[in-house]
Every structure is written in structure tokens, then in C-alpha cells.
């Protein structure tokens, strides 16, 4: 009798897991099917177009520009975002929650809106764009692309770095300082190395988000064309069959870089674990 009730208990437990798994599989399929389908149809039906696209200089240029501009945006995000993340992790102050909300704003607002907002500031008559117009142009130029990418991707880096810093016990910094290290030294030698995995993951996410940006970029800098703009343009002017090979190529390149970086970060030493 007892055995039996145990068995039904186990079965009902298994049932829950089974239902959860099923639901999970559906959402996973939702992500995987379009990607695989696109790549597969391209390779099976029209591999020649893919090869031709891979040799198309303007396509390669645009993909390279996406990767490069995203890299610059991530670099700037690192320089300005990591220090902010540290302050947020270590200090309590009035208005801290508002600042944390502000950081998340770029994730919330539609990216075309972000593009327009950026244009009003970085445009040739904008608040920042105008005084700088003799030195640096943002509209239809690389700096404009970088600014748009930075805006939409920096929250990922700041949030991840902040989590990283929060996971480092402040006592470690205390001890380092008692041993003669200034705060700067303690942060550089103890806290940053220990939070480096979080910072790296944040940088990867930020980079990936920057590459995938389209809405904000087209508004501030349609030219020079990044890959997502080129795909959009080809789709409008020449249709699906012309834009798909570019899309597939961009996706393959991005996935390769993404997988590579994820692999590196997974192997990154984890000190926060036993």
C-alpha cells in the first residue's frame, strides 16, 4: 500500500517535470526552427547565391563594419560602464535606484525612438553634434553607428559587471587595503580579476546586442551600411531571395564569434565556485 502511494507520488512528480519539459521544448523550437530553416533552405535550394554573396565585397564590408562598430561600442561601454558598475555595487546613496532604472531605459524604449533621440543630440544641429561638428560627424558616419550601438547595448554590460562586483566580498578589498594596497590597487588586483568573468560575459552580451541593432542605427546613420541595414535594403529593393543569403552569412559569422566567446568565458576561471 505504502509502496503504491510512493509510486503515485513519484509519478505525479515526474508528470510535473514532463509537462515543464514539453513547454520548454516548444519555446526552444520556436527559437531554433526559424534559424535552422533559413540556413537550411538557403544551403539546400540556393547554395550558389550564398557563395556569390560571400564573395560580394559590399556584403563583406558591411558585415565587417557591424563587427567593428560593435567592438568599438563595447570598448567604450567597458571604459565608462565598468567604473559605474563598481560604484553601484559598493556604495549606497540617495537616488541609487533611479540610476539603476535609468540604466535599463535603453532596453525598454523602442529602438527607432532611441535613434530619433540620439539624432536630436548627435545630429549636426544637435546638443553635442553641433559643437563637435568641425571635429567629428555622427550622421551617416561610423561614430553615429557606434553611438547608436552603445546606447542600446551598454545596459547589458553595466548590469553584468555590477553583479560581478557584488559577488566579490568587500572584506577581500578590506584585507588588501590593510596589507598596504590603495583602493585603486585593491580594485585592480583583487576585485576586477574576481569579477572578470561577469565583465567578460557582459561585454559579449553587449557586443552581440550591438551587432543585432538596426532601428537606432538606420535613423542616425543609414550609410555606411552595417549588415542589418544592407539586409533591410536588399529586402526592400530586391526581395527575399536577395536578402536571405546576406542574412544567412551574417548569422553564421555572428554565431561563430558568439560561440567562440561563450566558450572562452565558460572556461574562464571561476573563483566564486567550490
Amino acid at each position: 500500500m505504502l509502496e503504491r502511494s510512493k509510486l503515485t507520488f513519484k509519478m505525479s512528480q515526474e508528470k510535473t517535470i514532463l509537462i515543464f519539459t514539453l513547454l520548454g521544448v516548444i519555446i526552444l523550437a520556436f527559437i531554433v526552427i526559424p534559424i535552422v530553416n533559413m540556413i537550411a533552405t538557403q544551403v539546400i535550394l540556393d547554395v550558389d547565391a550564398l557563395i556569390k554573396t560571400a564573395k560580394d565585397l559590399s556584403v563583406l564590408k558591411s558585415i565587417w563594419l557591424s563587427i567593428y562598430a560593435a567592438f568599438l561600442a563595447t570598448l567604450i561601454a567597458l571604459i565608462f560602464g565598468v567604473p559605474l558598475a563598481y560604484v553601484l555595487a559598493r556604495r549606497d546613496f540617495w537616488g541609487k535606484e533611479s540610476i539603476e532604472s535609468i540604466i535599463d531605459v535603453p532596453i525598454v524604449i523602442p529602438h527607432t525612438v532611441a535613434g530619433i533621440a540620439l539624432l536630436t543630440v548627435f545630429g549636426s544641429h544637435g546638443l553635442i553634434g553641433y559643437p563637435l561638428s568641425n571635429y567629428i560627424g555622427f550622421v551617416d558616419a561610423l561614430p553615429g553607428i557606434v553611438v547608436a550601438m552603445l546606447f542600446v547595448s551598454v545596459p547589458f554590460l553595466i548590469n553584468s559587471a555590477r553583479e560581478g562586483f557584488e559577488s566579490v566580498d568587500p572584506r577581500l578589498e578590506n584585507v588588501a587595503r590593510s596589507l598596504g594596497a590603495s583602493r585603486w590597487k585593491a580594485v585592480c588586483e583583487i576585485t576586477i580579476p574576481l569579477a572578470s568573468r561577469h565583465i567578460l560575459v557582459g561585454a559579449i552580451m553587449s557586443w552581440a546586442r550591438a551587432i543585432s541593432e538596426f532601428g537606432a542605427v538606420v535613423i542616425i546613420a543609414y550609410y555606411p551600411m552595417i549588415a542589418s541595414t544592407l539586409i533591410y535594403e536588399r529586402f526592400l529593393s530586391e526581395g527575399l531571395s536577395a536578402s536571405r543569403p546576406v542574412a544567412v552569412l551574417l548569422m553564421i559569422v555572428c554565431l561563430l564569434v558568439f560561440i567562440l566567446l561563450r566558450a572562452i568565458s565558460a572556461r574562464w576561471k571561476r573563483y566564486d565556485r567550490d
Binding site: G180, I190, Y271, D272
Partner: peptide, 20 residues
């Protein structure tokens, strides 16, 4: 004075060794 100028040796209950 900042901690680094005081020259104290500090040992916490949970050791606080630098894990890396």
C-alpha cells in the same frame, strides 16, 4: 588615515583569502 597607511594585519573569521 586610510587603511593602507595604518599597517594593521587583519584576519577575518571566514579567512578572506584572495581566491584567485
Amino acid at each position: 588615515m586610510t587603511p593602507e597607511k595604518r599597517g594593521t594585519g587583519f584576519v577575518y573569521q571566514d579567512y578572506s583569502l584572495f581566491p584567485h
